[in-house]
Amino acid sequence: MAMTSTVKVWDRPIRLFHWSLAGSVALCWLTADELQSLHEVAGYAVAGLVGLRLALGLAGTRYARFSQFIRSPRRTLLYAGDMLRHKEPRYLGHNPLGAVMVVLLLLMVGGIALTGWMQTTDAYWGVEWVEETHEALAELLLVAIALHVVGVIHASLRHHENLVLAMITGRKRAPAGGDIL
């Protein structure tokens, strides 16, 4: 049985960020109504993780950098059309729709963390629009997470690659002809 060669794509800081964010968001969701102090600590962890990801996106390794994977709206729409026709290329890093999801998730969890923090200040304590925004973003985040999981499953099946395992090990199948680096 021949071994398929692999290459390192996701470095340790990105993988730790990803799984720490997933765990922190899950903890926030589970403690939202019952354990306020734990909810707040997990929320601050989320805020710190978003800050870390922004730094990695600007000055991290190749596949962590926003400049490597954020594509133009036109290119993203072309990719979506190719995907619907089952003709999308494999990307070694994030594909254009994955990039949109990264940005969307960062904006959403950042907004949730911001509105959560605002509720702890004198200026915004009990302000209805802040509470409603916090809750609405948290509910929308669940939809975005579901779409993220569906996208990971779709890309894994389409390109015969376990993307969950890649986010654990950092390694993906070596590029072949037609793959986009």
Results as ranks from 00 to 15, higher is better:
100 V>F: 12
13 P>A: 09
92 L>Y: 07
111 G>Y: 03
170 G>N: 08
6 T>K: 15
128 E>G: 10
162 N>W: 10
70 I>E: 03
125 W>I: 02
28 C>K: 07
33 D>S: 14
81 G>S: 12
54 L>M: 13
146 A>W: 06
116 G>A: 09
80 A>H: 00
65 R>P: 07
149 V>F: 09
54 L>A: 07
89 P>M: 05
142 L>P: 00
52 L>I: 13
141 L>A: 09
42 A>Q: 01
126 G>Q: 00
113 A>D: 05
52 L>E: 04
138 A>N: 09
73 P>W: 04
103 V>K: 10
173 R>P: 09
136 A>P: 00
50 V>D: 02
150 V>K: 03
143 V>F: 15
178 G>I: 01
79 Y>C: 08
44 Y>A: 12
130 V>R: 00
167 M>N: 02
173 R>M: 10
162 N>H: 11
60 G>N: 11
43 G>F: 11
181 L>H: 11
73 P>E: 06
91 Y>V: 05
163 L>I: 01
147 L>P: 01
144 A>S: 06
90 R>K: 12
106 L>I: 08
85 R>C: 12
123 A>Y: 03
75 R>T: 00
8 K>R: 12
102 V>I: 13
137 L>D: 03
154 H>F: 14
87 K>S: 12
106 L>N: 08
155 A>Y: 11
28 C>G: 09
128 E>W: 10
143 V>Y: 12
34 E>M: 07
9 V>M: 02
66 F>K: 10
82 D>R: 06
119 Q>G: 15
30 L>C: 09
157 L>Y: 10
79 Y>T: 03
100 V>L: 15
45 A>T: 15
96 P>L: 01
62 R>S: 11
27 L>R: 04
18 H>I: 05
90 R>A: 02
123 A>K: 06
34 E>T: 14
54 L>W: 06
178 G>A: 07
130 V>D: 02
20 S>H: 00
120 T>A: 14
169 T>N: 04
44 Y>Q: 15
45 A>Y: 11
167 M>F: 02
49 L>S: 07
23 G>C: 01
90 R>N: 01
84 L>T: 11
127 V>L: 08
15 R>M: 02
53 R>A: 08
79 Y>V: 02
55 A>R: 10
45 A>Q: 08
123 A>L: 07
39 H>D: 04
17 F>E: 14
101 M>T: 12
100 V>I: 13
53 R>S: 06
171 R>V: 03
18 H>Q: 04
25 V>K: 05
151 G>A: 00
85 R>E: 14
111 G>A: 03
164 V>Y: 05
93 G>H: 07
135 E>D: 06
4 T>Q: 15
134 H>F: 02
72 S>R: 07
7 V>C: 07
43 G>K: 11
88 E>S: 03
18 H>N: 04
14 I>F: 08
58 L>W: 13
105 L>S: 06
28 C>W: 03
75 R>E: 13
32 A>V: 09
159 H>I: 01
51 G>Q: 02
16 L>R: 04
172 K>A: 09
157 L>S: 05
126 G>A: 09
2 A>M: 07
59 A>T: 15
161 E>M: 08
165 L>G: 03
19 W>Y: 09
11 D>L: 13
23 G>S: 03
118 M>I: 03
90 R>H: 07
